[in-house]
Design a protein around this nucleic acid. Structure first.
Lengths: 150, 150
DNA sequence: GATTCAGTTGCAAACGAGTCGCAACTATAG
DNA sequence: CTATAGTTGCGACTCGTTTGCAACTGAATC
């Protein structure tokens, strides 16, 4: 299930340059992993993959870089309904928000883009006079394949 | 900001009886706290309040009871955008799902019920052939009062 | 290219939320 | 009243994440 690639690899690095954020060997490795990831990664997976590019990358640097990316609104943080433990998953923020669905039986993660979701956010902004910065809709349930069984 | 009280206090206890779940002193205290809570509680707050009703209540019993309530679909688990740390918050599941909005500046939590949200869930069920069991929409941003400032 | 220094790093220790194994206890059915 | 399956408190533990600190380094300036 490849993520939609609506942005070029290298864009995260470009964002850093634009904003005058210092680029280091370690950050380059971590950003490259985020840019080329084809699925949602947690911090441990991100660390392992980044260490293949630069063996010196440390766990704490991964966490610090994730905070940095979050603060700049370049990634989204997900729970995926805590299907695999208490940790978090990360993905690059792309043009359009999407919904995450997690199958409680087979663990599959699905994504879904919806105009109704955009409309809902518009309603919240208008009716609640609330300025939305980040939104997260996660759904747990049973996917088409698992609905029949159990 | 009181939660909508569309169910009577005592309903959680009634659910337990209906389903033949054993009722203990400690559970009675914990359920009573959940039933009368006027805001979202985390496990530590729930423990403190429950201990005022029954001093013997232990942390692990609180967690075990929360798992039980979750498994029976009687409570919802929230992150509230991790505004106050990594823990979780709990609230009784009421008739209608609602959206949670967290102000990134003042920390206020707001709730919002929307037909469009119901419609969106309907779309997911239909278009993705996905049977929804639990859903969570959390939004971070700036509330009406804080939008001007900063 | 050398100098400078704020920003960044690895390390190890600490943290907080949540879980678990176990022996003692207790709510409920018979 | 008894039997027993379910529940409890306790303490030790796991796991994801954060922190303080001394050493290092990117990049701006000369």
């Amino acid at each position: 299930m490849p993520l939609p690639q609506t942005e070029m690899p290298g864009r995260l690095q470009a964002h850093f340059a634009e904003r005058g954020i210092r680029m280091t060997q370690q950050r380059r490795a971590i950003l490259r992993v985020m840019e080329t990831a084809t699925k949602h990664l947690d911090a441990a997976q991100l660390l392992r993959k980044a260490q293949k590019l630069d063996a010196s990358v440390d766990r704490s640097t991964v966490y610090r870089t994730l905070q940095l990316l979050k603060r700049h609104g370049l990634i989204d943080e997900l729970d995926l309904m805590h299907i695999h433990g208490e940790g978090h998953y990360y993905e690059r923020k792309l043009n359009r928000d999407h919904i995450h669905m997690a199958c409680l039986r087979c663990g599959k993660i699905m994504e879904f883009v919806s105009d109704i979701f955009e409309k809902l956010k518009g309603q919240v902004e208008k009716d609640c006079r609330f300025r939305i910065v980040v939104s997260r809709l996660e759904i747990g349930g049973y996917c088409a394949g698992c609905r029949g069984a159990k």
